[in-house]
Computed example of a mutant assay.
Amino acid sequence: MKTRLAPFVLLAALCLVTAVHAAPPQGGPRFLGPKPPEKVKRVVTLVPSLTETVIALGAGSTLVGVSTFDEAKEVAGLPRVGGFVNPSIERVVGLEPDLVLVQPGPGNQRAVETMARVGVPILLLPLHTVADTLEAMRAVGKALGKQKEAEALVQGIESTRARIRERAKGSRAPRVLFVYGFEPLVVAGPGSFADELLRDAGAINVASEAGSAYAVYSLERAVGSRPEVVVDAADVDVGKDKVAALPSLSQARWVEVPSMALLQPGPSLGRGLEELFALLHPAAKKPDAGTPR
């Protein structure tokens, strides 16, 4: 039984499936409701990746409320305001935030719009792709007066991506199935940040034509995809044995993500990419100690 990952991961993935099919494409970061004060002192976040961003910017002291699924030790004592799809309007409003950071989706749209109508400043931050994630870091940095810190985070991730791409040139590209859940089978498809990072790591995403970023995949299609590596990013093992026993999948090498770094679209993506590269290319020579990282 797995206990290392929060239920948020699969929940968010399935919500994004709904978003892809039920809502038109969203633009970049945008404000909703009243304008936040010039000096933001009280921040509420509705997903762990945005909490991570605030902390990484050196603005953790502004946090006054976080989601049910936040596990960072820095926010262990903070009030919980619900989850990605069920934020509590009453709890958020009661914390009197100067700004609420939101990953928008159909599941939370009504609650977030209600918060804005009653006078709560909202910053909507789509997090579907790596580009979205980097743009969100810059937007949060600007809102919190941490532009230089945000740019440093962005450049750090881009530097890691460039370095991993270069290392991947010397390795054969494995065929990979990246799994978020087994029952139903949910995989990383085109447009997801995991799909982008698989390419960065020198891999072929066998679900690149799945039709959506977080696709519910048929077992027959999974068998036909003939992966060489299956990356298990699910938070529970329910249904895994059945999938692992399928023809072609039973012949694949199975690996598990070692941390949340690859699963939260935030400042840890660079570290997550390094972990992914190590999983996919275990025989690759590690950089010398004197090689810039």
Rank of each mutant, 00 (worst) to 15 (best):
T114K: 15
P184A: 05
L185Y: 01
G119Q: 08
A194H: 15
E183I: 10
R91M: 10
G189F: 01
S171L: 13
R161C: 14
S159W: 09
L99M: 11
I164D: 10
R199C: 12
V130E: 01
E183Q: 14
L153A: 11
G141Y: 02
V176R: 00
Q103D: 14
V120H: 06
E135C: 12
A207K: 03
A131C: 10
A162E: 12
G191C: 03
N108S: 11
D200K: 09
A173V: 11
A136I: 05
A136V: 03
K142C: 06
L124S: 07
I122K: 11
P174V: 10
I204E: 13
S192E: 04
Q155P: 01
D200T: 10
V179M: 01
M137L: 12
K169D: 04
E158A: 03
A168E: 02
L177R: 00
R91Y: 11
F178Y: 11
L144R: 03
Y180F: 06
L123E: 06
H128L: 11
K148N: 15
A168W: 05
A131G: 13
L185A: 09
V206F: 10
I157H: 09
E96M: 10
Q109W: 13
A194M: 15
P121D: 06
G181L: 00
T133F: 08
A203W: 04
Q109L: 04
E113D: 14
Y180M: 04
L123K: 08
F178R: 00
P97M: 08
Q103E: 15
S192A: 09
A131P: 11
V120S: 07
V154R: 01
L95E: 09
L134W: 03
R165K: 13
A143H: 00
K148A: 15
G105W: 08
A143T: 02
R163Q: 12
H128A: 12
